[in-house]
């Protein structure tokens, strides 16, 4: 395996970006990520992006965003209809092939144009479940109920996760939900999708991010402290909610084992946990012990940019390690209802 590192990162997230199109708000981020390492688009060996037509409400929506990269002359490029973390994975695979040394990765999503709770219903089984229009929060509520009634977690534990996310987010300028709240204040909130309270659900955001990857010595040339992707793996669970254990993310556990989480201590973990319940399940599935700081950025609870939230976890971990706030971290991304699909990587500073 070749050593691949993250060399630069740029992001933007806010509750809504009504005045700019996707490509308009992505261009400055793309330029920023490339400028940080002194590369132009034509220096990139490969480019890969992640986005969703259903989010944009338009077929082939990524076709208008590619213009932001400056794809003239033409570029070697691909796109996944997945979170940007899978675009990073595809770029990592391409770099493993050995014929390119640099890759540009970006992803973005605007949740504000459509009703995300409705849009996500179209992810469900199209014959048996989607016609019922299950609300995305209600679906997670099923997992939450199981977790609580099985005694796996308590409502107080969920409130602690929510409170910690808010406290961490207070110092993150990209976070949307930054107002601090105590555990008791959160427990006093009225249920939104019983047993989930407003603080248990993600703060929806519009935004995106861009990142440069490079292999081996090329990465060392490009930045002071490359952050190496020591291992990366992704897995999927069954889709049908009734056939899998919603209180344990089997696919996250396997991906974590394959990525070597637990082989050595990590300083912190950036987990793409849209709900407090997701975070509780992931901590167990990945076997993170109490010494690991979870979501120092505030995580996806504090700002959930669909299609980018997973890649942003990688970026947050990169920035923290690059500036010396830790050496080893877990970065994680998820997709689908109730943590169906999970990607896990171990990152380490030079």
């Amino acid at each position: 395996m070749r050593d691949i590192a993250i060399c630069s990162f740029a992001q933007r997230q806010q509750a809504a970006i009504p005045d700019e199109s996707e490509v308009e708000f992505m261009v400055p981020l793309m330029v920023q990520a490339k400028d940080a390492v002194g590369l132009t688009q034509q220096d990139m060996g490969f480019t890969c992006s992640g986005s969703s037509d259903f989010l944009a409400g338009q077929a082939f929506s990524f076709v208008s965003t590619i213009d932001g990269t400056g794809p003239v002359p033409p570029i070697s490029e691909s796109h996944v209809e997945q979170d940007g973390a899978w675009a990073l994975y595809e770029a990592w695979v391409k770099l493993q092939c050995g014929d390119v040394d640099t890759a540009f990765v970006y992803s973005y999503g605007k949740s504000s144009p459509g009703s995300l709770r409705d849009v996500l219903a179209t992810q469900m089984d199209p014959y048996y479940v989607a016609p019922l229009w299950p609300d995305a929060f209600a679906v997670e509520g099923l997992a939450a109920r199981l977790l609580l009634e099985s005694g796996t977690v308590s409502e107080r534990r969920l409130a602690e996760i929510a409170s910690r996310s808010r406290a961490h987010a207070a110092s993150n300028p990209h976070a949307v939900r930054r107002a601090e709240k105590s555990v008791d204040e959160i427990l006093a909130e009225e249920y939104l999708a019983d047993p989930l309270r407003p603080s248990d659900i993600p703060a929806s955001a519009d935004g995106g991010c861009a990142m440069v990857l490079a292999a081996g010595d090329r990465a060392r040339e490009l930045c002071d402290r490359p952050v190496w992707i020591r291992a990366i793996d992704h897995r999927i669970d069954a889709h049908t909610l009734g056939v899998r254990d919603l209180t344990a993310a089997m696919s996250a556990r396997i991906a974590g084992e394959k990525a070597g989480v637990g082989a050595d201590t990590v300083d912190f973990a950036e987990l793409h946990a849209p709900f407090t319940t997701s975070e509780a399940v992931l901590i167990e599935a990945l076997g993170l012990d109490d010494g690991v700081v979870v979501n120092p950025s505030g995580g996806a609870l504090a700002a959930h940019t669909m299609m980018a939230a997973g890649l942003i976890r990688f970026g947050e971990a990169f920035e923290r390690i690059a500036r010396g706030d830790g050496d080893r971290a877990v970065a994680h991304a998820t997709a689908g209802p109730c943590l169906q699909q999970n990607l896990v990587a171990v990152l380490e500073g030079e």
Binding site: V80, Y89, D237
Partner: peptide, 18 residues
């Protein structure tokens, strides 16, 4: 996501290109 079972993917990696 919905096709994971049909494609024998449970516990395995699946990617989606577009």
């Amino acid at each position: 996501l919905y096709l994971a079972e049909a494609l024998g993917c449970v516990g395995k990696p699946i990617m989606r290109v577009h």
